[in-house]
Design a protein around this nucleic acid. Structure first.
Lengths: 202, 202
DNA sequence: AAAACTATCTTGACGCTGTCAAGTTTTCTC
DNA sequence: GAGAAAACTTGACAGCGTCAAGATAGTTTT
């Protein structure tokens, strides 16, 4: 519906998509309400019909980012159903891949959107769904004897935290070259995951 | 040397300090070259005599942040020398405390300063020193039989990553209330750390 | 079908920002 | 003490987020 009518038709989503594109192409520094409006072909104030302020647009872009992350995690786990051991490893790799390939979206997703706790219910919903997806796999791993039983929530948050931390440090180039020359990021992730496991994850 | 002379005397450090104060008091959104200049009592262009651009000021503030983190980690570990088991736990808690209490500095420290790899040698130096401090304690833990021997670098980066990730998720309010109602952040940190340990860390 | 209403979008303005150019003042160097 | 260099000010510019006022398009009411 991107005709040349006065009313765009689906400007809200067009703005979110424009934001995603700008993040991917030109990085976080180029993301402004005005650049997003330009890319969507509307005036600089048009976004205010759909977002109360810039923070709300960022929340919407972050929400879209979480949808993509969720989809990629699901796509990684789906074909390995009934094999949680492989699922948890595949999800870790998918998480890393997403962060590396959609760097700026990943960064914006974890850069303070949840300050105003309940202001963005869609964001809360999909971010919870994402952590639940991981927690469910962890739970399956426990049933399969791959992780010790009990304290599922603790295991899930610890594993997600570990995964998120290693990926974040890597994106920030905080992992020294003496380590990166020896190991792939993938190795580090697996090594860390294996601290939790009763059987060896590969 | 904050007299009313034309030349400030130590404007560079005054600007960094002003930036730290603004971050602590008014948050990351209030940090601008001009606000920092105002706080230091100089004109809006004065910072350009000491920093080529805003990114350089942010790098300097981040460097100061790492110095503080390093100091607090050292202060936590120092009194427990010869007891690496307690040191690693104390450092994890100190890391968490720093992140919680100096939230915005912590965030800015891990928000892309190292993009231009070698542009900020002071930053690289202190951030390396910080990870080395943790790695040394991990190494001592191995010698003491608290962690398995070998692959010290892997253990160090995995533990730092885990610590960093859990703290980051907590700051982002990404850890669900169903978990936080049951456990303290401290418990989560300890639980995660214990996955690596051969003896129980408390 | 006309009128009233509402959502959407444009235009124009405001103060704030980062940055640069030019000029002024101080300190350093010889 | 002269000349150079460093530190700082003033003034300007474009871009930013945001708001107010107005134009335009759908939608609802009668």
């Amino acid at each position: 519906m991107t005709t040349d009518t006065y009313h765009h038709g689906d400007l809200k989503n067009a703005l979110i998509q424009a934001g995603v594109d700008i993040l991917a192409r030109d990085g976080i520094g180029a993301l402004s309400l005005r650049s997003v409006a330009r890319k969507a072909g509307v005036s600089h104030s048009a976004p205010y019909a759909h977002f109360p302020d810039k923070q709300a647009l960022i929340a919407a872009i972050s929400t879209e980012g979480f949808h993509r992350l969720y989809t990629q995690l699901e796509a990684a786990a789906q074909p390995l159903a009934s094999n949680p051991q492989k699922q948890i490893v595949a999800c870790a790799r998918a998480y890393l891949n997403f962060a590396v390939q959609e760097r700026d979206i990943f960064n914006i997703m974890f850069s303070g959107v949840l300050e105003q706790e309940k202001a963005y219910p869609d964001f809360v919903e999909i971010s919870k769904a994402t952590s639940t997806l991981l927690a469910d796999i962890v739970s399956e791993c426990q049933k399969a004897g791959i992780f010790p039983n009990g304290q599922t929530d603790l295991f899930a948050v610890a594993i997600w935290g570990q995964l998120h931390g290693i990926v974040s440090l890597a994106l920030e180039k905080q992992i020294s070259h003496t380590v990166l020359d020896q190991y792939q990021l993938d190795d580090i992730l697996l090594f860390a995951l294996n601290q939790f496991a009763l059987v060896e994850l590969t």
